[in-house]
Design a binder for these strands. Structure first.
Lengths: 341, 341
DNA sequence: CTGAAAGCGCTAACAG
DNA sequence: CTGTTAGCGCTTTCAG
């Protein structure tokens, strides 16, 4: 179907020289005369010669492909991290193959298997929320295939990671709520399996403590990150005899669902209840009131993940680095009472 | 760095047979004894042998990779189409390499160039909004490399396409507005270069006509799909001496921006102005009021695009098909006055 | 029933 | 300064 692409052989034949001469000429080998180099390059340009990556791959045992696995594609956070990864990958002449685990452990495993078959040189991964067994990653490590985790991580002693300071961020939100008059602060967490869930919860607890607020277990809800389960969680919070006067959630999707449910209950934000989210999706500025949220340095996260990746391909195995980035709390209308604003 | 993967040679050596015997055994060649086949397969399994795709690629001149180029990744519409493509691609044992043009013509060209170098077998593309020159695609066609366009298309006489019935959809919105009492219907279009812009505008015009409404050029705005330019467009509409009583936009992003601006002007939706969007992003249900929008069959769009792709790889060149899918108008609160609802 | 050899496109060591 | 050869992993004749 597809026409065969031009090869060194074609150029060699047309020029009446050997294949290796062309190969060398194209790469400015000092053994080839300047004049011949010129003729070779000219013809190669004319015929639009580009080296066959499969031949190169076979020879060098490198594919220049990175497998990236994210829990989903639609979230702005992941798209943005991917952009960062691609930027650095391109600088190194690498391609990125993106797969989505759809938050599903089984799919995550399949993706890895498929990408291994395709001979990606390594992986950059954000764990699916279902993942509690890490054996598929341990296999990658044992095979000495480069691997980097970002945001949701595991096996930190063996694998380089890029994360944000989740603890600080959720502590910050808690303090922010308190400063704005909240005394009954609730938090909707994600699955306990995720590192981000644990860290954000810890920040919440310490934050409460620093504000002199008592932790109430009924104010700590958990959801599976789906809008539906977030809705249920908020519903339970609102049904409490003494409901919270501030709520934040593990990400903006959760908080958007919360917003809907709160509105449905006829409760006003921020008058009756303060609200804040995580990740700062684009839509945080679209909703009414605009949503206070923790902004992640997404592009940098991607760039750094890619750099950690290349450190592995280029150097010999070193102690894995864990890089933690800072977040910014972007205060908007949902967490500040109008009278104060 | 990476350990060499197991090859046929390794298995052959271990079994004391030749490479070709192993190759045949693995594929149940009738010439090989059942007993040997069994031993070969067993060892292959044990050693986790998987064929080297680069060797296969070299031999067969196929990479089993499809290059997909979309204007952006964050939009739910594109992520969802990609899921559809991936689904069908996987059935055929193909991989998808996703690139974003970021709505930029230059990037679109670069992406194609890079993917060509990587020897993708063909392309599935949604045009960037900047693209008016199609020579890069004509090169692909001339090289007889499979190509499919979806949603935003061009060169329909040479390239198979999947689109939605944009004309019908925007005509439908216009009628819907009219049924709900609107008499001054405005439309915020996208760049005239895009097929979807032209078609949706045409539907708007015919819709107006059918409702017995006169077309007013000041009600037809254009934007570059960015929130900022959408905001400006709405602003101009609201500043008119006789502003519109209904507005729809070429996509939901545009309409979200519009919503913000309308709210800022202290105008209520849907009481003072009806609103509707296109593409039905997830967030359409998050905003207040919930947004009426045209729902696209995104997954199917992806699936069909992939099928059209494989028709090209499998058959000889045929007359390119243009497939048009139907949309659904999802009516929510933004386009129906409360009194009526 | 099995092996040897050629070739896909390329580079690098070895010859001239 | 240039050509020959081997080999990356695999399939496919062609020979046994």
């Amino acid at each position: 179907m597809v026409k065969r692409r031009i090869s060194l052989k074609d150029i060699a034949k047309e020029l009446g020289v050997s294949i290796s001469t062309v190969s060398r000429g194209l790469r400015d080998h000092p053994d080839i005369s300047d004049e011949l180099i010129l003729r070779i390059k000219e013809l190669a340009m004319l015929r639009r010669y580009t080296p066959n990556p499969m031949a190169m791959g076979l020879l060098k045992q490198r594919t220049r492909m990175i497998g990236v696995i994210v829990p989903d594609l639609v979230t702005h956070f992941f798209s943005s991290v991917i952009s960062g990864i691609e930027e650095v990958a391109k600088e190194h002449g690498y391609f990125v193959i993106i797969s989505s685990s759809y938050e599903c452990y089984q799919k995550e495993r399949e993706n890895i298997e498929n990408l291994m078959k395709a001979r990606v040189e390594g992986f950059i991964v954000c764990l699916s929320q279902e993942t509690t067994d890490y054996s598929h990653f341990e296999q990658i490590i044992d095979a000495e295939i480069p691997l980097v985790f970002f945001d949701r991580v595991c096996l930190k002693d063996k694998v380089p990671t890029v994360t944000v300071d989740n603890f600080a961020a959720s502590r910050r939100i808690t303090l922010h709520f308190h400063e704005n008059g909240a005394r009954r602060i609730a938090y909707i967490s994600g699955p306990e399996t995720l590192s981000i869930s644990k860290e954000r919860k810890a920040g919440y607890l310490v934050g409460l403590d620093e504000c002199g607020l008592e932790f109430k277990s009924e104010f700590l809800e958990e959801c599976d990150l789906s809008p539906q389960s977030a809705t249920n969680a908020v519903h339970r919070l609102l049904m409490l005899p003494f409901p919270p006067d501030a709520v934040f959630g593990i990400n903006d999707t959760v908080v958007f669902a919360a917003m809907k449910e709160i509105r449905k209950a006829g409760i006003s934000i921020p008058e009756d209840i303060l609200l804040a989210g995580f990740t700062d999706e684009f839509h945080a500025t679209v909703v009414e009131p605009t949503l206070t949220s923790v902004m992640h340095p997404t592009l940098d996260m991607g760039r750094i993940a890619a750099r950690l990746f290349f450190e592995q391909t280029e150097n010999d195995r070193v102690q894995p680095k864990s890089i933690q980035l800072e977040t910014t709390l972007v205060v908007r209308n949902s967490s500040v009472k109008k009278s104060k604003a």
